[in-house]
């Protein structure tokens, strides 16, 4: 019995360090050094590819540095941040991004959950149906953007051709202010509804069957079962999917670049697209770094609030 105690400790390193080195191993090559040796490559990669760029961007965000103009970076302290936060151009893009995120994520959640609910009730062909529904999610956003651009073309596109055969007029999907943002939301929904569906399906299949059986014995209606059993049990998982999608949608760039280039005018320019323009059209690296840091902060703050809500939900 006494031999088993160290194995159950929650500090395996403590036990490992007490073990003498294997015969033939260099005395300098202790377990600690071995651990450091194994972790170092990944740690160095992380430092070089993630931590350093982030710290460097943070430093640049306080300067007027330009990647192409070169020369030393002059500190402007919070001038970049002040300019971004007070810019009407940025406010406009923030509003566009907000409308897009709310529209796309809401639509994806409703559709994704509805599809998952319908699939979960099927006994035959569920695997095949799930696989088919997942196909859009597996495609590259650039590919998706390009073929939707062709389909939505007002003159030659298949969507208007179908509308024409139904006796409806042509719609300028990508070149009118009212329809361009809707088109972006529809295309994003087409691609990412399967993600919500997948998470919701996992939640739905995990609901214990005996709850439904008990409800059936009590002659509970379909709606009552959905409202009191299905939804409360799936809701926390669904909210995590919504969180992932909201973060992704907040960073939207590729679909905008391919489908509308931010047009007409700047009416579909999202924050990410605007950062790209600031960074690469004028190479205002300092401003673009501050813009990027602010976007990261917004995501972190909103995520924290969201996670607190999720935890509260869990406790309740």
């Amino acid at each position: 019995m006494s031999d088993l105690v160290p194995l159950t400790t929650d500090h395996p390193g403590q036990v490992a360090s007490a073990t003498p080195p294997a015969p033939g191993r260099s005395r300098r090559l202790s377990d600690r050094w071995l651990a450091v040796g194994f972790i170092s490559p990944a740690l160095l990669l992380l430092l070089a590819m993630s931590v350093f760029p982030l710290l460097w961007a943070l430093y640049l965000s306080f300067t007027d540095y330009s990647a192409t103009r070169g020369g030393p970076a002059q500190f402007v302290w919070f001038e970049n941040y002040t300019a971004i936060l007070t810019s009407a151009q940025v406010h406009l893009r923030a509003l566009t991004t907000l409308i897009y995120v709310v529209g796309a994520v809401t639509l994806q959640t409703v559709l994704g959950f509805a599809i998952a609910y319908l699939i979960s009730r099927r006994t035959h062909g569920r695997g095949l149906l799930t696989t088919l529904f997942l196909v859009p999610m597996m495609l590259s956003p650039v590919v998706v953007g390009l073929f939707w651009r062709f389909m939505l073309d007002a003159q030659f596109g298949v969507i208007n051709s179908m509308l024409g055969s139904l006796g409806l007029g042509q719609v300028e999907w990508l070149t009118r202010q009212q329809t361009a943002l809707i088109s972006l939301i529809v295309v994003d929904t087409w691609q990412w509804t399967p993600f919500i569906m997948l998470i919701a399906l996992a939640g739905l299949t995990a609901v214990p069957k005996y709850l439904y059986e008990a409800a059936s014995i009590d002659r509970a209606s379909e709606w009552f079962r959905f409202r009191t059993i299905t939804l409360p049990l799936v809701w926390p998982l669904l909210l995590i999917a919504v969180l992932f999608r909201a973060i992704e949608a907040f960073r939207l760039f590729d679909l905008v670049y391919i489908l509308t280039s931010g047009g007409p005018g700047v009416s579909t320019e999202t924050l990410s697209f605007h950062v790209y323009k600031v960074a690469f059209l004028g190479f205002n690296t300092g401003t673009a770094s501050a813009y990027g840091i602010l976007m990261v902060l917004v995501v972190i703050v909103l995520t924290q609030l969201y996670l607190r809500y999720l935890n509260k939900l869990k406790e309740d």
């Binding site: 007027d64 330009s66 002059q74 402007v76 302290w77 919070f78 001038e79 970049n80 002040t82 300019a83 971004i84 810019s87 151009q89 940025v90 323009k277 600031v278 960074a279 059209l281 004028g282 190479f283 205002n284 300092g286 401003t287 673009a288």
Partner: peptide, 14 residues
């Protein structure tokens, strides 16, 4: 504004 912003400190490019 872009032409005038050459001496501006911070927020260039917006």
């Amino acid at each position: 504004a872009v032409l005038n912003a050459s001496n501006r400190k911070g927020g260039g490019g917006l």
